[in-house]
């Protein structure tokens, strides 16, 4: 069984970090995994997106034609990619800055005001980690402690305070999604 997740938004929102952290967590759980960023000719700005494929078998194509999960951090991302999601899949929406909602009725939508929540915690740059908390709770692809450990390993020796903010942001997102 292979699960594919697609993360999208604009440059600077930590979209690629969401994918990299999930891919690392999936690897540390012992899953097969690929991470594929969309790469362009531009040096900065513009849209950013990446695909993570995870499964208990060898992953053939790292491209997701029909991802099971779509995470959108900006309005253009919602418009561009909502039709990609497989029927019965889930769309995670950063509802702090996206006012529109998916037009599709065959997918589940989860609205998380993650920019507002990160600001309430004192650091809007943790917006992506709030979203990851919600993503991990809903998808249950990896256990929350594996994800947090993997995230800390990637952040490495950077400031200790950052790890604390990330942990708080993750828990806020995780608790926001009700069972």
């Amino acid at each position: 069984m292979i699960i594919k997740a697609f993360f999208s938004g604009f440059g600077g929102q930590g979209v690629l970090m969401m994918g990299i952290s999930l891919a690392n967590a999936a690897m540390n759980k012992g899953l097969h995994v690929t991470y594929l960023p969309a790469y362009g000719a531009e040096m900065r700005g513009g849209t950013a997106n990446c695909t993570v494929a995870m499964g208990d078998e060898e992953i053939a194509s790292p491209v997701a034609s029909e991802p099971d999960y779509l995470v959108v951090m900006s309005s253009p991302a919602l418009f561009s990619f909502q039709n990609k999601v497989t029927s019965g899949g889930t769309i995670f929406i950063n509802s702090s800055i996206i006012e529109d909602r998916p037009l599709r009725r065959d997918v589940q939508s989860l609205c998380i005001p993650c920019t507002d929540m990160a600001q309430d915690l004192g650091n809007s740059r943790a917006t992506n980690i709030v979203m990851m908390g919600a993503f991990i709770k809903k998808s249950q692809i990896v256990a929350p402690d594996i994800y947090l450990k993997s995230l800390e390993a990637i952040m490495g020796s950077r400031k200790k305070s950052l790890a604390e903010i990330n942990r708080k942001a993750f828990v806020a997102g995780f608790d926001y999604v009700k069972d």
């Binding site: 990299i20 690897m27 995994v33 690929t34 991470y35 594929l36 960023p37 790292p62």
Partner: peptide, 9 residues
Amino acid sequence: GMMGQMMEP
């Protein structure tokens, strides 16, 4: 380009 850009364990 796919082999170059893709991350794998």
